[in-house]
């Protein structure tokens, strides 16, 4: 039914950029967060990962850029394999942007300094060039006027947009979004989703863990449903939201629909 080549026109034949193969991750506490997950994101594709809390979605993202080690399996970015401990992990993290649920902007730096930090400290680019790039990115996320403001003076939505700009400043090959809108006030969710949608349109490869079903339905090229550390089902948004194959998926989607709705701007 849902064969991989169902993927949306234009992306299904692009080369695979993120390739996750049979990944296991067990926490020192004994909890098995991932129990054999496989997943592919092709270049320019938006893959949304949905599923109940504790299903291993966030852990998977953190394994992709080596913030957490894996016990078994393989994760590759392009033709490089991710190893959490190795020096390579740094090289891979440079190429992959990450956006956190709690923003994690550096509170002691202005918005501009936050966006400049990667190119400056990691890429060691010249100061003038860094500033040009950072200002352009702040403009892109609609925050030109907030360049000299500290994170504490920004709303949640604004902070998250700065965080996206900060990740983009490294000119990453792919972006990981770890529940980027879950900690936001309802009225600022839309502005962050809009930025993400714009990125998707520009052809950024994105792995998006989200509870925003509307976003997954409208923007994703591919939707992955996870539960208990396993991929339950995957397919095009049309298939997953229209005619999911498994009863478990249907149950999950029904639960989400009936949860106190957080509407996204149409």
């Amino acid at each position: 039914m849902t064969e991989p080549n169902d993927r949306r026109q234009g992306t299904h034949d692009a080369p695979a950029l993120i390739r996750i193969e049979d990944v296991f991750r067990r926490y020192p506490t004994g909890v098995e967060a991932l129990r054999g997950v496989s997943l592919i994101a092709h270049e320019g594709e938006v893959v949304c990962i949905i599923g109940p809390s504790g299903s291993g979605k966030s852990t998977l993202l953190r394994c992709v850029n080596g913030l957490e080690p894996i016990d078994r399996g393989r994760i590759r970015i392009g033709d490089r394999e991710v190893h959490a401990k190795s020096r390579d992990a740094r090289e891979i993290r440079r190429q992959i942007g990450m956006v956190f649920q709690s923003f994690e902007l550096f509170p002691h730096m202005t918005a501009l300094a936050n966006v400049s930090e990667g190119p400056r400290t990691v890429l060691r680019m010249p100061r003038a060039e860094v500033e040009t790039r950072a200002r352009a990115l702040l403009a892109k996320v609609g925050l030109s006027d907030k360049a000299d403001v500290l994170p504490a003076q920004l709303s949640g939505g604004q902070q998250q947009r700065v965080a996206i700009a900060r990740a983009l400043a490294m000119q990453p090959r792919a972006m990981l979004f770890d529940e980027a809108t879950s900690a936001l006030d309802p009225e600022t969710v839309g502005e962050v989703l809009n930025v993400m949608q714009q990125l998707a349109r520009e052809g950024m490869t994105m792995l998006v863990v989200t509870h925003e079903m509307a976003f997954a339905r409208d923007v994703a090229d591919w939707v992955v449903v996870m539960e208990n550390g396993l991929v339950l089902e995957e397919g095009t948004p049309h298939t997953i939201f229209g005619s999911p194959r498994l009863a478990r998926t249907r149950e999950f989607l029904l639960r989400v629909e009936h949860a106190p709705a957080r509407r996204v701007e149409p």
Partner: peptide, 8 residues
């Protein structure tokens, strides 16, 4: 983690 994720 945010620092490391930037490649630091």
């Amino acid at each position: 983690h945010a620092g490391l994720a930037l490649g630091m």
